[in-house]
Design a protein around this nucleic acid. Structure first.
Length: 753
DNA sequence: CTTTCGCGAATTTTT
DNA sequence: TTCGCGAAAG
């Protein structure tokens, strides 16, 4: 590597002088397949951005570069950092493509709509729309909506799409009833999407994968354009994304993927960890660079998280080191119940603030969104500024979805899901009966609902009243559409949005009432107008506009709606704001803070109860915990409550098994006396009393813990002893010894269940 | 046709 | 606890 540096001139040396040897190798290995294994805090973004700058400095035209990320935030940060590296050469970055996977696919599909056989002005369905479409699909497939929930059916369909399996293919090799049924719903669901000119998230990837697979001309064109491909967070790619990446890589095979198998946390969504594990097999002669130095966290944090992740069967041995010193130990704190836990976190943060850490450098992470409620309350009560990173929440509010549905209908007249949502919102005399009649007519004549409304005179079943109401509705939308598409009266996007809110009657509906709720809804609608005003078109469009091709309102709405459909929670973390950030562990991926608290480290929460049956899922929970811990630079606080109220029911909880897996010397334990156990604590820490743990008893010999139940007189454990059957013992008094699982005491022995 | 009420089910994570 | 759905009342 040294001679590489010797060969560099002044300006390029500037790009390397502060990098480690491994990082330099990752930056300068520009030809052929390259896998960068980047542990937490190892300077992954630095490497990718320097690599882009390096390629540009080598004279590679910017439009030949394509970098794909998972979130808008990651893409934005990458763009900013490239710009910071190359401040003077703005026009040299023209055509440089740094986008999210989904955003990139959406763009390709609009560009090649004909080849991909999608409508050019397709709508992207978010999870709410998808749910609505799935319900209709289940109904159309003649199945009982009670047994076939949108969630379960949707997951099955999603899995099919990730594997590029079409409904027909799925049905053709269907054996059992379940598979056949899913196939039927899948076909119905896809028919709805097609009729509505809509694509769901999976379709964005699927359609592009199929396009690249089947259309050689398009594939070649893209391969020729994008000579250098980079993919961030590669451990979270699914099969469709792998297909896309493989197809984009031309004969020169310049593909660089960056990721960390230990941070794969989207398996539940179809992410396939083998993409990164098998990279060297998929792309023969790939170079592998492992970034082993952690620039982010202090020693105890690095050691503790390493100790945890080593417990995973799937973990590949490797060492990470930091040169930032040992730092503070991790605080592991217990609390009586969740309110105390939240208060303790706030008190801790307040102390850090007094010591000089700004609020924006602190974050609270949790497994499930429901936990944010208690935490928010505690922060509010203490008057500590906080922000809940929930980018999508605003756009999920009913009144916002209503307003957006009107806009969607303007852009895409065939969007029946949007139409259903707003045809009677606010009420305009078109009830269920009328809608049913319209639908019957539409099906009979093979029309969309929008078309049927345009010819509502021909629907004899409708009452005159309903007919008139529908006619008015149809004309209203048609008028908007005409005005948006080249009409001269409209000034700009926010004006148009506000006009729709007004003329649709949404505004009036909330202005009539004066309840707290109505006022909030009005404010939200105002907020939407503000959001429209603050929105700026993405770069490609902006460049086109600079050339004098200004966008019509219709095009602006379409682009705005697309950007809304593709926002994620993490996108909303604003480093400029002076608040503590509250978010899920998933949303925290890729971020870092000086001070991090993880709340709710309890059995059933983290790891989540739904992962109990499956070792693979449990390992993903451990990775999730690992991701959370490694977000911290200096201070990490893990906490649990002994009691937690979920859905109005208070339940006893156990500390997470993960706490028992952390090296003792990295922890500063601040557990509290468990009020349910009597006095003397057992020699085994509570969190090690897990179902499945192996123990040895002085009299009964070897056994396995089957149940652990906290009781007023002390926590009891039911243990299945190899020779004595099951016994229930008081944890505090039993003379038990925990057997190291590595000893494999069960080898060759049938464990009685 | 609209509104209200009561019941039952549910929440893990999200582009 | 909260949401969504269906039934019954207005």
């Amino acid at each position: 590597m040294t001679n590489t540096i010797d060969l560099m001139d002044e300006s390029t040396h500037e790009l390397m002088h502060d990098l480690t040897e491994a990082q330099v190798e990752a930056v300068t290995t520009t030809t052929g397949p390259l896998l960068v294994l980047a542990g937490p805090g190892s300077g992954k973004t630095t490497v990718v951005t320097r690599r882009i700058a390096w390629l540009l400095a080598q004279g590679v035209p910017p439009w030949q570069l394509l970098a794909l990320t998972f979130t808008n935030k990651a893409a934005g940060e990458m763009r900013n950092r490239v710009e910071a590296l190359l401040p003077d050469v703005a026009q040299d970055r023209r055509g440089l493509t740094i986008m999210t996977f989904h955003g990139f696919c959406a763009r390709l599909l609009r560009q090649y709509s004909e080849e991909a056989r999608v409508a050019p002005s397709f709508t992207i369905y978010d999870s709410t729309d998808r749910r609505a479409a799935l319900k209709i699909a289940v109904r159309n497939a003649g199945l009982d909506s009670g047994n076939w929930t949108p969630a379960s059916v949707g997951e099955a369909i999603s899995n099919c799409k990730n594997k590029l399996t079409t409904a027909e293919q799925h049905e053709s090799h269907a054996g059992d009833f379940y598979t056949r049924s899913i196939g039927r719903v899948y076909r119905e669901y896809q028919a709805i999407l097609t009729r509505n000119d809509a694509l769901d998230f999976d379709d964005l990837l699927l359609k592009v994968a199929l396009l690249l697979r089947d259309d050689q001309a398009v594939r070649t064109a893209l391969q020729e354009r994008f000579q250098y491909l980079m993919i961030d967070e590669y451990q979270d790619t699914n099969q469709a994304q792998f297909m896309i990446a493989s197809a984009l890589v031309g004969p020169q095979r310049n593909i660089c993927v960056v990721g960390d198998p230990d941070q794969s946390i989207y398996g539940w969504r179809g992410a396939d960890i083998s993409n990164i594990l098998d990279f060297e097999h998929q792309f023969q002669s790939a170079r592998v660079v492992s970034l082993g130095r952690n620039f982010r966290s202090t020693g105890h944090i690095v050691d503790a998280s390493a100790g945890l992740i080593q417990r995973n069967e799937s973990h590949r041995e490797r060492t990470l080191h930091t040169e930032l010193g040992a730092g503070d130990q991790i605080v592991v704190a217990g609390a009586v119940e969740e309110h105390d836990e939240a208060r303790d976190i706030v008190a801790d943060f307040r102390q850090r603030f007094i010591e000089g850490t700004p609020w924006r450098e602190m974050a609270v992470l949790y497994r499930i969104n429901a936990l944010s409620r208690v935490l928010e309350q505690a922060f509010r009560d203490a008057q500590v500024p906080y922000v809940v990173a929930r980018g999508t929440a605003f756009y999920e509010r009913a009144e916002i979805k209503d307003a957006l549905s009107y806009l969607r209908l303007v852009v895409n007249p065939r969007d029946d899901i949007a139409l259903r949502r707003v045809i009677n919102t606010p009420p305009r005399g078109i009830g269920k009966t009328s809608l049913d009649r319209l639908e019957k007519h539409a099906i009979l004549h093979q029309l969309g609902l929008g078309d049927a409304i345009d010819r509502v005179d021909e629907v004899p079943a409708l009452t005159a009243r309903a007919q008139a109401a529908m006619k008015r509705f149809g004309e209203m939308v048609a008028r908007w559409r005409a005005d948006a598409d080249g009409g001269s009266l409209i000034l700009d996007l926010p004006d148009f949005v506000s006009r729709i809110i007004r003329e649709s009657g949404l505004e009036k509906a909330f202005r009539n009432g004066s309840s707290e709720e109505d006022i909030a809804r009005l404010e939200n609608l105002d907020e939407l107008v503000t959001a429209a005003a603050e929105w700026t078109p993405p770069r490609e469009e902006a460049e086109a506009e600079a050339k004098g091709e200004s966008m019509t309102i219709l095009q602006q709405i379409a682009a705005w709606l697309e950007s809304i459909a593709l926002v994620s929670d993490a996108d909303m973390v604003d480093p400029e704001n002076g608040s503590v950030t509250l978010m899920t562990l998933h949303a925290a991926k890729g971020l870092e803070f000086d001070v991090v608290a993880i709340a709710g480290l309890e059995q059933g929460l983290l790891p989540h109860a739904r992962s109990f049956e499956d070792d693979v899922e449990r390992e993903e929970e451990r990775r999730l915990c690992y991701v959370g811990m490694t977000r911290a630079r200096r201070l990490l606080r893990l906490s649990y409550a002994n009691r937690r109220t979920v859905r109005g029911i208070t339940e006893r909880t156990m500390p997470s098994q993960f706490l028992g897996e952390l090296p003792a010397e990295t922890m500063d334990r601040q557990d509290i006396a468990d009020p349910w156990s009597t006095g003397t604590a057992s020699t085994i820490p509570l969190e090690n009393w897990q179902v499945g743990a192996t123990v040895r008893h002085a009299t009964f010999g070897l056994g396995m813990i089957r149940r652990v139940v906290p009781r007023p007189r002390g926590t009891t454990a039911t243990i299945e002893f190899l020779e004595y059957g099951h016994r229930t013992l008081l944890v505090a008094h039993a003379k038990l010894e925990l057997v190291d699982p590595d000893e494999h005491p069960w080898e060759g022995i049938d464990i009685p269940i």
